[in-house]
Nucleic acid binder design. Structure first.
Lengths: 224, 224
DNA sequence: GTTATAATCAATTAATCAATTGAATATCAA
DNA sequence: TTGATATTCAATTGATTAATTGATTATAAC
């Protein structure tokens, strides 16, 4: 075999290390979670709804491909993305899939149809209403994701603690809930619960990644 | 299982259709070739050095993932990328691999070391020298790729026809050869041959994709 | 030291995938 | 219609891969 061919094979083999690492639905879900912020193996396993051993194995595949890195914090091992570029890469995959695979829109439509009447609000409208204080925005992701970055003015109301916040929420003013983006179901569930309790709740499809990608501001840490 | 989980699984499954399609070195090579321009199955098979049947199968995997599309031209079937976005996606993979996998640089260095002393010239220098006419630029890719887009002022000299052009090339002036980019070996081979014949030849690492990505102009069709 | 917890490792199974071969299909031209 | 060519299909092989299970390692608290 010519040396040129051997070289080419070696190079494409390296490229494929990256693509093979992301060629699994579960690993894509783990990457998606890690785009929202760093996490321990246990948290990742729980949120992706797989066993810890299985999550550990998937994470190591991602690590060997240098897409994620780890750090030991006492008895925990924290995984995080190996850079913003990896998050961008995941967003690219997402966008490509959305634009090339009509099935995704279909699956989403089907899912949303099975949810009780669910309006949603777009970015621009929301931003204007937040600015004028005409709306209450809830970030229903886990608190650590909120701290890693949230939409300015949003309240940190993790979905599992939504019940505790119910009495402090306005009953007349509109409430907008968002989570990790269009394929995350937290906001859908939050809105469903809020509407059941008589609130005026709508969902925003975008997550922080989409918001940031539009060049819109993101607040890091706690709200003042 | 909750409907939220079923929905998530379905969505990530769709994302993975894209990533599984690119999770093979050979399919990445085919995509790389298609980034340079459309081609028939036979041409792709020949350039990737695999059997036609094998190429056909790989191409169909890419087609099912909607990354490429086909058109029948008589007895030929022409494959092309399903949009500029797919080319960008491939470039993203390439960049990510280059930046995260030190092995690639190592492999490249090793390959170039085995080639007889091979200088290379960067984009900016080349552009300036082309502008002032101080250099002859050769595009050593196949003619159809040249027509699909080439660096302004470059001559179309496919490597397999290089011999025929030898007498019309300047012997005193510097000659710069380029091909599909840093991992393509055509320019390396062309420079090697030219230097063997006594020409002042150097290689430019960038291909048209890299050139274009810098916002530099690209000429489509034949030179005037 | 002992214990509890987080994470990884090792071994297994079923499933999926890459490449090869030879046959089948589609188009065009004689 | 027949023959030639480009491509795809179908069946087979060997190689990877995902998920599960139970055992093992590493750390911190007692």
């Amino acid at each position: 075999m010519k040396s040129g061919r051997r070289y080419k094979n070696a190079v494409y083999e390296q490229f494929a290390r990256i693509t093979k690492a992301v060629a699994s639905p579960k690993r894509l879900e783990l990457l998606d979670l890690l785009c929202q912020g760093e996490r321990t193996v246990e948290e990742l396993a729980k949120q992706a709804e797989i066993s810890v051993a299985n999550a550990s194995q998937h994470l190591q595949v991602l690590r060997v491909a240098r897409l994620v890195e780890t750090e030991r914090h006492g008895v925990f091992i924290v995984y995080r993305l190996a850079g913003q570029r990896v998050c961008d890469f995941f967003q690219t995959i997402k966008t490509l899939a959305e634009q090339h695979l009509a099935e995704i829109e279909q699956i989403t439509r089907q899912y949303l149809q099975n949810q009780p009447d669910l309006e949603s609000v777009d970015r621009e409208t929301l931003r204007e209403r937040v600015r004028t204080g005409a709306v209450t925005v809830l970030d229903v992701r886990p608190a650590e994701e909120y701290r890693a970055g949230h939409i300015p003015g949003a309240l940190c109301v993790p979905i599992e603690r939504l019940d505790q916040y119910l009495q402090s929420l306005p009953t007349e003013q509109e409430i907008v809930a968002y989570c990790r983006g269009p394929y995350c179901v937290l906001a859908v569930e939050a809105v469903s619960k809020l509407k059941g309790k008589g609130f005026l709740a709508v969902r925003m499809e975008d997550g922080v990644q989409e918001w940031r990608a539009q060049g819109l501001p993101v607040t890091i840490g706690e709200e003042p």
